[in-house]
Design a protein around this nucleic acid. Structure first.
Lengths: 152, 152
DNA sequence: TTCAGATAGTTTTGCCGCATAACTATTATG
DNA sequence: CATAATAGTTATGCGGCAAAACTATCTGAA
């Protein structure tokens, strides 16, 4: 067995950051399994969702919302475009820019994937008391804001 | 500017997983800045903390607690050992195994880093109502468990 | 009006986190 | 005692992500 008895991470458990890392890692691993049948990853699913919700979105805007660099978005859009899930058409008003639109095929795949993700998310949060669920989301958004403002 | 008006991610915001990803990413970025002055990353800080708390821990046990593969722990321990923060000594009872111990220098560095991380963590959670903070941690641990059990 | 600076998209490169496979040395077990 | 299991290690590769450098285009101020 071990050294003497049980191993403890009590010191780290004092940090909400540690709890978040563990929860998110476990959730992410499980979500990946949910998305694999659709040929999607977290990032490609999120990108698809945002283009569905914001037709005509430009790549740079999408990168901003996803908080990743434009450079990294290129391969994501490449992948989705090559699979015929979205289109990249030149902008009519700005010849530098492109407009992103989801194809019918992309819409269809997204609808199915979104249902699966919704079910997955429900499973994840099921163990949290109903009345605490909105407060949990509020707390997470508050932490996101605290972390961003802390940059200063 | 944009396409028409504001870009929305309301569809993704319905998922607690999305809120968690964003919160964790922001927190992690900020925590990295906190740890940089100590020459530590999240992973090396966590490893150091666990060895401080569990002297004589074996690498395989450490990997299990950190939920990473033994193979990846090697480089982490290598790094900490080369910096003189911990020692890797042969186990007396099992000639395959090693025992990890933090050096005085490691203890000293960890004490300082731990204080900085504690302050960082306090800033992160400061925006969450005091009475909700323990419930937030409970919820995160519950989600971690839900995600792990969902593998089945 | 023109030209310097900003912006959009892209390519390249590299680091970090993490998984898998394969290997050696040692221990445990049927 | 032979086989299986375990501890540590090395090598390899993928995904997420950042930084730098480049071209094409747009914008704003002298």
């Amino acid at each position: 067995m071990g050294t003497t008895g049980a191993i403890t991470d009590a010191s780290l458990r004092a940090f909400v950051g540690y709890d978040m890392k563990r929860a998110f890692n476990a959730l992410q691993a499980d979500l990946s399994r949910t998305l694999t049948p659709f040929g999607l990853r977290m990032m490609t699913f999120s990108a698809l969702s945002l283009v569905v919700e914001n037709p005509g979105l430009r790549p740079s805007q999408l990168a901003t919302v996803l908080t990743i660099e434009r450079a990294n978005l290129v391969v994501i859009v490449d992948e989705l475009e090559q699979r015929g899930l979205l289109t990249r058409t030149p902008s009519t008003t700005d010849r530098r820019a492109h407009a992103l639109h989801v194809t019918d095929q992309g819409q269809s795949l997204f609808a199915k994937a979104n249902r699966a993700v919704a079910e997955h998310d429900a499973r994840m949060i099921a163990g949290v008391a109903q009345h605490l669920q909105p407060q949990l989301k509020d707390a997470l958004r508050q932490i996101e804001n605290s972390a961003k403002q802390d940059v200063v």
